Amino acid sequence: MLQPDAALLRALLPFPRLIPALRDAFAAGATVPLRHTHHIGEAGQPGAGISLLMPAWDDAGFYGVKIVNIFEGNAAHGLPGLHSTYMLYDARTGAPLAMFDGNEITSRRTAAAAALAADYLARPDARSLLVVGAGRVGSLVAPAMAAVRQLERIAIWNRDTAAAARCAQAWRDQGLPAAVADDLEAAVREADIVSCATLATTPIIRGEWLAAGSHLDLIGSFTPRMTEADPACFANASVWVDTDEAPAKAGDLINAFAAGCLSPEALRGNLTDLARGTRGGRESADERTVFKGVGTALEDLASARLAYQQLIASPR
């Protein structure tokens, strides 16, 4: 069984390869059961945690399971609150093929899915990007978006300006034209693409800030109590999701439904529709688009499969 370290895994999943792999995976489809949630110990008690199991398998003969363990009390032990692993198997025999760092799989596929959506929904001439959030996923958004658009200006905003500065410097080291945004509203108004990758529970982005023809990408929040954009962001916009589970999981959408700014019936479609070409993406230069992603095990499986195939093609 192969077990590459995190650094090698990152090298195996460059965005110019990962984004097309996700496109192909959404077009082909996979079996993705609902995730399993297990509570370990009693909630609120020391040592209690939650374990999430996210399985998926495809017709190409691959079966994978991501296990995410969330233990909020780990800070007291000097440990991260979340640990994740990904196991890839042969779907025809059950034989284990590889074990991957689940955090790397998750963060890279999340940024790649955002870029895949932007390739369909952002204007072809989009040149400016604002990233909101400088965490694990946020730090990957600019390189991912740069794989689908010729970006001439990249700004990053984060509540911790030092973290934003470190992220901007890392992007400049990669040859990207990045700088820190001090004024969030002004940065949103100037951006062709606004990408949010935060764990916010109150809205950060206001609808009145978004320019005509802009694309809003929301990939940070993934539970009903989390939200990055106020309901007005969805009014008079073409709204797309990654999967049909998003309306029940995403606080952004739930709040927009409750406020009357969006209805479930008004959702334009999902990434499968776009990848298969059964529904068109952006229809005009002035159209304002929104993509809300909550993540899916299909993306994890596609990423793990790509990494494995490259490992066996070029043993290291």
Score class of each variant (00 low, 15 high):
1 M>G: 11
1 M>H: 12
9 L>R: 09
13 L>Y: 04
21 A>L: 04
25 A>Q: 03
27 A>S: 05
29 G>A: 09
31 T>E: 12
32 V>P: 04
35 R>W: 00
35 R>G: 03
36 H>A: 15
37 T>A: 12
42 E>L: 15
45 Q>F: 13
46 P>M: 07
47 G>I: 01
51 S>E: 14
52 L>S: 08
53 L>A: 12
56 A>N: 00
61 G>T: 04
64 G>S: 04
67 I>H: 13
73 G>N: 08
74 N>W: 04
74 N>Q: 04
75 A>D: 14
76 A>C: 07
76 A>I: 09
81 G>V: 12
81 G>I: 10
85 T>H: 14
85 T>K: 13
87 M>P: 09
89 Y>A: 13
89 Y>S: 13
89 Y>D: 11
93 T>L: 08
96 P>S: 06
97 L>P: 02
98 A>V: 03
99 M>Q: 15
100 F>G: 04
103 N>T: 13
111 A>G: 03
111 A>L: 02
116 L>Y: 01
117 A>V: 00
120 Y>F: 15
123 R>L: 03
131 V>P: 07
140 L>W: 02
141 V>Y: 09
143 P>N: 05
146 A>L: 06
148 V>S: 00
152 E>D: 15
152 E>Q: 15
153 R>G: 06
155 A>P: 05
156 I>T: 01
157 W>K: 05
159 R>Y: 06
160 D>W: 08
165 A>C: 11
166 R>P: 07
173 D>K: 14
173 D>Q: 15
174 Q>I: 12
175 G>M: 09
177 P>C: 03
180 V>P: 03
181 A>F: 08
188 V>A: 11
194 V>D: 00
201 T>V: 14
202 T>N: 09
202 T>R: 11
210 L>M: 07
210 L>R: 07
212 A>C: 12
219 I>W: 01
220 G>V: 04
221 S>K: 06
222 F>I: 08
224 P>G: 02
224 P>N: 03
230 D>S: 06
234 F>M: 12
235 A>Q: 15
235 A>Y: 10
238 S>A: 15
241 V>T: 13
243 T>P: 06
244 D>R: 12
244 D>Q: 14
245 E>R: 13
246 A>N: 02
246 A>S: 06
247 P>G: 02
248 A>V: 10
248 A>L: 11
251 G>K: 02
252 D>K: 01
258 A>F: 09
260 G>E: 05
265 E>L: 07
265 E>M: 05
270 N>K: 04
271 L>W: 01
274 L>D: 02
274 L>S: 01
275 A>W: 08
279 R>S: 10
280 G>V: 11
285 A>S: 12
286 D>P: 01
286 D>A: 11
288 R>H: 01
289 T>L: 05
291 F>M: 05
292 K>D: 08
293 G>D: 03
297 A>Q: 00
297 A>W: 03
298 L>Y: 00
298 L>R: 00
299 E>L: 10
300 D>R: 04
302 A>E: 02
306 L>Q: 01
310 Q>H: 12
311 L>T: 05
